[in-house]
């Protein structure tokens, strides 16, 4: 399911800023990144590349219906 989990987050917000489609937000209570709008994840891995502690796990599958032109 695209961006799947965040573990070991230090709450630096790099991923939140770097996600082009605004998938991740900061949990104001725990001060950690939480996956908030996974349906908009485009599986581009920018969040993971920007994360200083490699906390983000992304899988290639997307669970919402995927529309393709043909094939």
């Amino acid at each position: 399911m695209a961006i799947e989990s965040i573990n070991g987050c230090i709450g630096c917000e790099e991923c939140i800023k770097s996600c082009p489609t605004d998938v991740i937000r900061l949990d104001q209570k725990t001060k950690k990144a939480i996956i908030t709008f996974p349906e908009d994840c485009q599986i581009c891995h920018l969040c993971r590349l920007y994360c200083p502690v490699d906390a983000i796990t992304i899988t290639p599958e997307k669970s919402i219906p995927v529309i393709v032109s043909w094939g």
Partner: peptide, 15 residues
């Protein structure tokens, strides 16, 4: 066709 939504994977490790 395999995981068509996965931009990153579709481009090898180019990103």
């Amino acid at each position: 066709a395999e995981n068509p939504a996965a931009c990153y994977d579709g481009w090898g490790d180019m990103f």
